[in-house]
C-alpha cells in the first residue's frame, strides 16, 4: 500500500479537526494500519489527547522544523499499537512567528517528510485553526484534505474559503493535493439546515465528497480529558460507531488519483 497523506483542515476553530485526526488514527490502527499522527498545533491538543504528559517535553515538530532534531528522534510510539506521534508544544508558536515571512517556509515540512515513509500506511496532520504557515505547510505536505465542518450557515463561507485555499496551494505548491471530502461534525441530519447544506455539498462538490457525519456525542467531549480515544473511552458510544464508519470510508476510498499527474515538488 502506498503511504497516504491526510489532513483534516479548517480555518474554523473547534469544528472537530483534532477529534477526527485522533480517532481516525486509532480507527485505522484497529484495522491494522500503521499511522503517524503529526500535531501541528501549538495548542498540542492531539498530543494531549493521545500521548503522555511527558510527550510535551519530548523533541517534537518544532525541533524537526527548526533542524534541531532528526525525524526518527521526534517520532514517539503512543500507547496505541500502530499509532505513532510527532508531538507538538507551545514552542511551535515561535516557529510560526519566526518563519511566516520567509519565502519557501511552507515547504519545510514536506521536505522533512520526503524520505522513506513506507513504515507508515498513513500520515495524518492536525493543523491549527488558521490559514497561516502551519496550515499551509500541512496542505503542502498532504495529498488528501478532509474538511470537518459543523453544518451551520455561517460555516459555508469558511468552507468556500477552504476550497479556494486548497486550489491555490495545489496550483502553486503541491499539485498532488486534492479536496477529498467534507466531514459533517456535531451532525444532526434531521435539521433542515443540515439537509440543505448536505444537498449543496453534493450539488457543487459531488456526492463522493460528502463523508459520513459525526454526531454530537458527550463521550467524544470527555475522552481527551482521560487521554483516551473514543474507542478506548466509550467503545459502545455513537461517537465510536460514527468514527469507525468514517474510518472505513476513508480507508476504502483508497488512494485516489491526484488532481494532476504525479509531479515532484
Amino acid at each position: 500500500m502506498m503511504t497516504r497523506y491526510l489532513v483534516f483542515a479548517n480555518r474554523k476553530g473547534g469544528c472537530g479537526k483534532t477529534t477526527t485526526a485522533v480517532n481516525v488514527a486509532h480507527g485505522l490502527a484497529m484495522k491494522g494500519r500503521k499511522v503517524l499522527l503529526i500535531d501541528l498545533d501549538s495548542q498540542a491538543h492531539a498530543t494531549i489527547s493521545i500521548g503522555k504528559p511527558s510527550d510535551l517535553k519530548h523533541p517534537g515538530i518544532f525541533h524537526l522544523l527548526k533542524e534541531e532534531a532528526a525525524l526518527k528522534n521526534v517520532i514517539i510510539q503512543t500507547h496505541i499499537e500502530g499509532v505513532s506521534l510527532i508531538p507538538s508544544s507551545r514552542e511551535l508558536l515561535k516557529f510560526e512567528s519566526e518563519f511566516s515571512s520567509q519565502r519557501g517556509s511552507e515547504t519545510l515540512l514536506s521536505k522533512k517528510l520526503s524520505g522513506d515513509m513506507s513504515a507508515f500506511d498513513y500520515l495524518i496532520f492536525d493543523p491549527p485553526p488558521t490559514a497561516g504557515l502551519l496550515t499551509i505547510s500541512s496542505l503542502t505536505a498532504a495529498r488528501e484534505v478532509y474538511i470537518p465542518m459543523q453544518m451551520h450557515f455561517l460555516n459555508l463561507e469558511g468552507l468556500a474559503e477552504m476550497i479556494r485555499l486548497i486550489y491555490t496551494v495545489s496550483a502553486e505548491q503541491n499539485p498532488n493535493l486534492r479536496l477529498a471530502g467534507v466531514i459533517p461534525t456535531f451532525f444532526n441530519k434531521n435539521t433542515r439546515i443540515a439537509k440543505e447544506i448536505t444537498e449543496d455539498i453534493i450539488k457543487h462538490l459531488g456526492e463522493d465528497k460528502l463523508f459520513p457525519g459525526i454526531r454530537m456525542n458527550i463521550s467524544l467531549t470527555e475522552a481527551p480529558g482521560h487521554g483516551k480515544t473514543i474507542f478506548e473511552y466509550a467503545p459502545g458510544s455513537t461517537g465510536a460507531s460514527d468514527y469507525m464508519d468514517l474510518t472505513k470510508k476513508i480507508d476504502t476510498a483508497g488512494w485516489m488519483k491526484p488532481a494532476f499527474a504525479e509531479l515532484t515538488h
Partner: peptide, 27 residues
C-alpha cells in the same frame, strides 16, 4: 431554503465557477 447564501454563490464569489474543473484552471 433555511440557508440564505448558498455554497454555489459563495464559491462563485471566490472565483470558483465549477469546483470540478477549478483546480485545473488554477494550476
Amino acid at each position: 431554503p433555511a440557508v440564505g447564501t448558498r455554497l454555489g454563490e459563495l464559491l462563485l464569489q471566490k472565483g470558483i465557477e465549477n469546483a470540478e474543473i477549478a483546480p485545473y484552471e488554477a494550476r
